[in-house]
Amino acid sequence: MALNTPQITPTKKITVRAIGEELPRGDYQRCPQCDMLFSLPEINSHQSAYCPRCQAKIRDGRDWSLTRLAAMAFTMLLLMPFAWGEPLLHIWLLGIRIDANVMQGIWQMTKQGDAITGSMVFFCVIGAPLILVTSIAYLWFGNRLGMNLRPVLLMLERLKEWVMLDIYLVGIGVASIKVQDYAHIQAGVGLFSFVALVILTTVTLSHLNVEELWERFYPQRPATRRDEKLRVCLGCHFTGYPDQRGRCPRCHIPLRLRRRHSLQKCWAALLASIVLLLPANLLPISIIYLNGGRQEDTILSGIMSLASSNIAVAGIVFIASILVPFTKVIVMFTLLLSIHFKCQQGLRTRILLLRMVTWIGRWSMLDLFVISLTMSLINRDQILAFTMGPAAFYFGAAVILTILAVEWLDSRLLWDAHESGNARFDD
């Protein structure tokens, strides 16, 4: 018995066209964080690309023209004298008006014999932002004059995390709450300039795509075929072959399989920071003279006294001054041990922890910024005066060393310790 099946006739004509040209192939790229070699397709503007294995951002879609970056830099340069030299806060102490600005706080630190601690604050609040705007201006002028731009481009990517104007702005709020127990506070004209400078700096850093600047100024022929001998440069993120001198053909720094002496430098910085954190938390970090009496505060006791007036601000200072430094030390110690013992479990967790400490590390400088600003506000000789204690130097040095330890660690070593050939990683 035959089955009668109805015929289905399409209502619209289906047209099949042959592909007349070869589909576009992607360029081969190595991930600078996990060293995976993959094919990167062509990316349009405002599109980002991520590593298929570790999800690290390979290409950032946010990109401004150099002219727009230069305009932002010149605007920031105009704001800087007002943000640093004009009063941020006014207080009335014992019937006398006192003005506080950024430069005055750094000068008070240096004047009291601790120039190293003052230079830490100076670099993060004044030096690094000033280098940022002058570097962008150098790129703008240098591109037109045919100057060598490689050193500036190499420095810009590392400079971003040292620009800490946003953290200093939080420190202004913390210092205001600490001082309000002794005097009446009012915002100064410099505060508005400083807030504007923070906003412009944040926007500029978020749109400063150094890798795209490398592509514009020093374009290189990408690798179009897969080759395990391809290496990625950690300076400019170019994937290719080393030249005859073993250097990256684009930025001219040595092109090595792994960062040289990464573990040794990381261990040295980490152990030194552990040693410095002990006096930083045991010795007094601030000293207040009130009517001839002397009151010393460690980091913890200062947080407890701050909690009596504002528990939320005390929580912020606790996280930045105690929780973050010790968390960074514990995480980095764990990561280094996992590399030495070739741990194969929990790779995803370790990668996330490394990215976390990379982002939060700079916030530990908050305590030094609060001390710097408070020193310029309260300084009335023996009637009422505020000065920093010996722990300030140890704390600042420990924070900087932990930042350097994270920067010096080559994250690809975590993958080397893991089993080879993993296309995915999980716990």
Rank of each mutant, 00 (worst) to 15 (best):
W162C: 03
P222C: 14
I106K: 02
M36D: 05
I287M: 09
Y168E: 11
L409M: 09
G346C: 15
R150V: 04
V406H: 01
Q344P: 14
S176E: 08
T110M: 03
Y182W: 05
L40A: 08
W92H: 02
D63V: 12
L263I: 11
I285E: 00
R62S: 09
W214N: 14
V203D: 03
R68Y: 07
T202R: 15
G293D: 02
L306H: 00
H418N: 07
S372H: 04
Y50R: 06
H90E: 02
V313A: 04
K13R: 06
G293I: 12
W415L: 10
F123H: 03
V313D: 01
F38W: 04
L366Q: 04
H207A: 15
I299A: 11
R226P: 14
E296W: 10
L191I: 07
V102M: 10
W140Y: 12
F341K: 12
Y218C: 08
R256T: 12
Q29W: 08
A2H: 10
K178D: 04
A417T: 10
L384E: 00
D166V: 15
I287V: 13
M332N: 07
P222W: 11
A269H: 03
A417S: 13
L153E: 00
W84M: 09
G235S: 06
Y394N: 04
R350E: 12
Q295W: 14
K265S: 07
L139C: 05
I185Y: 02
L66M: 14
W408Y: 06
R216H: 13
A280F: 02
Q112V: 07
V329S: 10
I14Q: 09
G171I: 01
T387C: 09
N281M: 12
I322C: 13
Y394P: 02
I274C: 13
R247V: 13
R380C: 03
I96D: 01
I177G: 09
A100S: 09
L290W: 02
Q108T: 13
S48E: 14
L208P: 15
I14M: 06
G61Y: 12
A269L: 03
G173P: 02
M72F: 02
G146H: 07
L323G: 13
K229F: 15
R247E: 14
S372R: 01
A196N: 14
M76V: 03
E22C: 08
R68D: 03
E407T: 12
R258T: 06
T298H: 12
D416M: 09
K13P: 04
G246V: 13
N209T: 09
M356W: 10
S364R: 00
L200M: 13
W140E: 07
I126H: 07
M72I: 05
Q29H: 09
K328Q: 01
C236K: 00
M147T: 12
V232M: 14
D297F: 02
R221V: 11
F393C: 12
G421I: 03
H237L: 13
A272P: 02
F192E: 09
W363R: 05
T374A: 08
L213Y: 06
L323A: 12
A269D: 02
T117M: 03
D416Y: 12
S286P: 01
Q47E: 04
I274S: 14
D166S: 15
V174T: 09
I400T: 06
V189S: 09
L230N: 14
T67L: 12
L271C: 13
S372K: 10
F194D: 11
I299L: 12
S420C: 05
H237R: 06
E21L: 05
R158W: 03
C266I: 03
A100E: 05
I167G: 03
S65V: 06
W162T: 02
D99L: 04
L335C: 10
L169S: 03
R62N: 06
P151F: 03
R225S: 14
C54P: 00
I285M: 08
T374W: 02
S48I: 15
R256F: 08
I403Q: 02
Q186L: 10
Q108W: 09
I96L: 04
G293V: 12
M155C: 03
Q344V: 10
L276W: 11
T387P: 00
L66W: 05
M332L: 11
R424W: 04
L409D: 01
L149C: 15
K342I: 11
A398R: 02
L354A: 11
S372D: 10
K160P: 09
A397H: 04
R245V: 12
S135A: 09
L132H: 05
L23P: 03
C236R: 01
R355K: 14
F341E: 10
I131W: 01
N310D: 09
S372P: 01
L154R: 01
R226A: 15
S135K: 02
D35R: 02
H418W: 11
I19A: 07
L300Q: 07
L93N: 01
I371Y: 01
Y241I: 12
S176Y: 06
P284K: 10
I172L: 13
R59V: 04
Q47K: 04
D35W: 02
R53P: 00
V198G: 13
I287W: 04
G20V: 07
M120V: 04
L165G: 15
Y182S: 11
M375N: 01
S376Q: 05
